[in-house]
């Protein structure tokens, strides 16, 4: 028996957990290969045209696994915080996959996650495993405990300031973790990179923005590196919080970056037609003037245009770097290329 894990959506956040879980249960797993043109095309074929790109990617990964695995893990993510939820598309994901990908109906394995924290190891979410996979409740409890430990270790690495792509290379390919750049150099540019893990770390969707920023010598901070308490403290001013936990985390991280003097600018990577982002993007954009920090939105979808991304990211980083140099007095006159002006909504 083989369980397929699509390399999409929350794979990037929970894979170490799932991997350990199945390992301890003694069930073989197969992970789909990284998103490629073929997978993308499959996804487009089986999903509604106007749905957001991460869902199309997920659909493509399921389609790629359908022949290779006996079961496919399509979790129904309902909540990971009290009174908050996931985007409706996550909540209806198994329903959607069941009726769109041919042959998926009998293969879907969908634990229903209704947790009160990021940790998803409560055995009650996984009752389906006992019936479908034929594991005993005791085995399941033990495996979940071990998986939880593994996942906490993984989260620690994030909180030390490593980007997920480096962590996965460390965990999977035993490559060394790069050293974290300390903020000693006064001209070091630090950018708060906002976006859901499945957009930013999917190298096909984000056109590997992490690598591009690193090549430009930028220090990157993302929301998963921050402490939850810190994130939620920074959106305490809101009368009514958003309904989506990960969107709240992004928004909280956004305001944290605005308030943190070591962050020089924000880049928001969002998928075309992402509902939650249409609200948080606007809120952060409206407030960027007040905090005097540049904010740029990069909208991605299944159309790839790497050239434009590189140009915009480069221009954005250059602008910040020049501003920094000027403020330190290293540039004593303004030349023809003004760095001033309203850059909201670039």
């Amino acid at each position: 028996m083989k369980v397929g894990i699509p390399k999409a959506l929350l794979y990037y956040y929970y894979y170490p957990f799932w991997k350990k879980l199945f390992e301890v249960l003694g069930i073989e797993t197969i992970v789909s290969s990284s998103t490629s043109k073929e997978i993308m095309d499959k996804g487009i074929e089986f999903s509604v045209p106007e749905i957001c790109v991460p869902i199309k990617v997920f659909t493509g990964h399921v389609a790629a696994l359908i022949e290779k695995a006996d079961y496919i893990l399509v979790p129904r993510m309902v909540s990971i915080l009290k009174d908050e939820y996931f985007c409706p598309k996550f909540m209806g994901l198994p329903d959607m996959i069941r009726y769109t990908v041919p042959g998926a109906a009998e293969k879907i394995l969908s634990p229903s996650i209704r947790s009160e924290s990021d940790s998803i190891s409560d055995p009650k979410h996984y009752s389906e495993f006992v019936d479908v996979l034929g594991v005993s409740a005791k085995e399941l409890r033990r495996a979940l405990k071990e998986a939880e430990k593994e996942w906490q270790r993984f989260r620690m690495l994030s909180k030390q300031g490593h980007v997920l792509s480096d962590i996965y290379r460390f965990l999977e390919e035993k490559e060394e973790l790069p050293e974290i750049t300390k903020e000693e150099d006064p001209f070091q540019v630090t950018i708060g990179l906002l976006g859901y893990v499945y957009n930013i770390y999917d190298e096909f969707v984000s056109m590997n923005i992490i690598k591009k920023l690193k090549e430009l010598g930028v220090r990157i901070i993302t929301f998963e590196m921050l402490d939850e308490g810190e994130i939620f403290r920074s959106i305490r001013f809101m009368r009514k919080r958003l309904f989506w936990t990960f969107s709240n985390k992004l928004l909280g991280a956004g305001y944290f970056f605005y308030n943190n003097p070591s962050v020089d600018g924000l880049i928001h990577v969002t998928a075309f037609n992402c509902g939650p982002d249409s609200l948080i993007g606007k809120m952060l954009e409206l407030d960027s003037g007040q905090y005097e920090k540049p904010f740029m939105t990069i909208r991605v979808d299944e159309h790839t245009g790497e050239g434009h991304l590189l140009t915009r990211v480069e221009a954005f980083v250059d602008m910040i770097r020049r501003k920094k140099i000027k403020m330190r007095g290293a540039l004593n006159h303004e030349n023809n290329f003004s760095i001033y002006g309203n850059n909201a909504g670039l």
Partner: peptide, 17 residues
């Protein structure tokens, strides 16, 4: 409405339904 989150799930299911 264009891009409506919950109704998109319905639309996906619609052909089979």
């Amino acid at each position: 409405p264009f891009g409506c989150l919950p109704e998109l799930v319905c639309q996906s299911i619609m052909p089979k339904a």
